[in-house]
């Protein structure tokens, strides 16, 4: 039988969490719904489809100092950044939870990225099932689903006056002890009906369509504005620079995008993806071909944010359908 927590008890539990750890939850910021650190439980939004930006910044921050070099006492001492606090992310949708797991595959591959590993170790994810689909989402075609509990520590599903609770991991158990929960009196509500896209066999079709003029034509309208990769839960490319600062230096890592013209420019000026079509193809081939080949799972989670945010309606759902036909035509 499922467990249950009343809305009131959930809010006081969140209050308790926020006094001990960094609590991150969906909050309205000037008309946008964003994951933000908050100490004020009353500002947490509980009724929403999904946030405008993904929660990836809490595992892979937009900007992070990797280490500092202290030269103040005559020797160069390298001090790696350490993650000092525990974080609890509340209200993550299953698609985004799958996204955080997808980030972990490359980042925790040997040699593991130490900062990412620390963020992941010190963060607990409280997921929230989707009872309503976003107009743009398609998670069930991308290896997850509206009530997928596989990548969260605790999964909540909204029910009358409270939430059904599924505690999935030891981390979750430590965070939400059994004593807070009662036996559920009703069945778990049915998850959202999510529209399907024809993704079966898409990797092979993409390889067949690699040299098609389709990519160049699609790129006609692409602005290479990077929005798709910045709102994406799983895009993990970055830029790194070193800066001199008083008494030493820092190495800084920031988000970057494969869509920006300079991204693949190499020393000597060669740019293997100098034109817009090959850059655009790279994004979709990484999501649906290269990453799945390497890690055995889709790199798109079907959250639909890129569809919603693209200023010129480049729609991965449509591209999947188009490429299925292109592949077959060849």
């Amino acid at each position: 039988m499922s467990k249950f927590i009343s809305r009131k008890d959930l809010l006081s539990w969140l209050e308790g969490v926020s006094s001990e750890k960094d609590l991150v939850a969906p909050v309205q910021v000037e008309g946008r719904l964003l994951f933000r650190r908050t100490g004020d439980v009353s500002e947490i939004v509980l009724d929403y489809t999904n946030t405008d930006l993904s929660p990836r910044e809490f595992f892979f921050p937009a900007t992070e100092t990797l280490f500092t070099v202290d030269k103040s006492n005559g020797r160069a001492e390298l001090e790696p950044t350490r993650v000092e606090r525990d974080t609890v992310i509340f209200g993550m949708r299953p698609c985004d939870a799958k996204g955080m797991a997808a980030l972990a595959l490359p980042y925790l591959q040997d040699p593991a990225d130490s900062l990412f590993a620390q963020h992941r170790e010190r963060t607990a994810i409280v997921g929230l099932s989707c009872l309503k689909a976003c107009p743009e989402c398609f998670c069930t075609s991308m290896g997850t689903g509206p009530d997928d509990a596989a990548n969260v520590d605790i999964l909540l599903t909204e029910a009358a006056d409270g939430y059904m609770v599924e505690v999935m991991t030891d981390k979750g158990k430590a965070l939400m002890p059994d004593s807070l929960l009662s036996e559920a009196k009703a069945d778990k509500p049915a998850p959202a009906q999510v529209p399907l896209v024809p993704a079966e066999g898409i990797s092979a079709r993409l390889r067949e369509a690699f040299d098609d003029i389709y990519w160049s034509r699609l790129a006609d309208r692409c602005l290479h504005c990077n929005v798709c990769s910045y709102v994406c839960p799983t895009c993990y490319c970055f830029d790194i620079r070193d800066y001199s600062e008083k008494g030493g230096a820092v190495r800084v890592r920031t988000w970057e995008s494969c869509q920006s013209p300079g991204f693949t420019k190499a020393a000597g000026g060669h740019n293997p993806r100098a034109d817009k079509g090959t850059r655009l193809r790279q994004r979709f081939a990484h999501k649906l071909l290269y990453y799945p080949e390497e890690f055995g799972t889709s790199h798109c989670t079907g959250c639909g944010r890129c569809v919603k945010a693209c200023p010129v309606n480049i729609d991965i759902r449509e591209i999947i359908g188009d490429v299925q036909k292109l592949g077959k035509a060849n």
Partner: peptide, 15 residues
């Protein structure tokens, strides 16, 4: 407060 949430995607420039 406005620029605090800029993610420097440069979409404003690209469009």
């Amino acid at each position: 407060a406005q620029f605090d949430r800029c993610i420097r995607c440069y979409a404003c420039r690209q469009v």
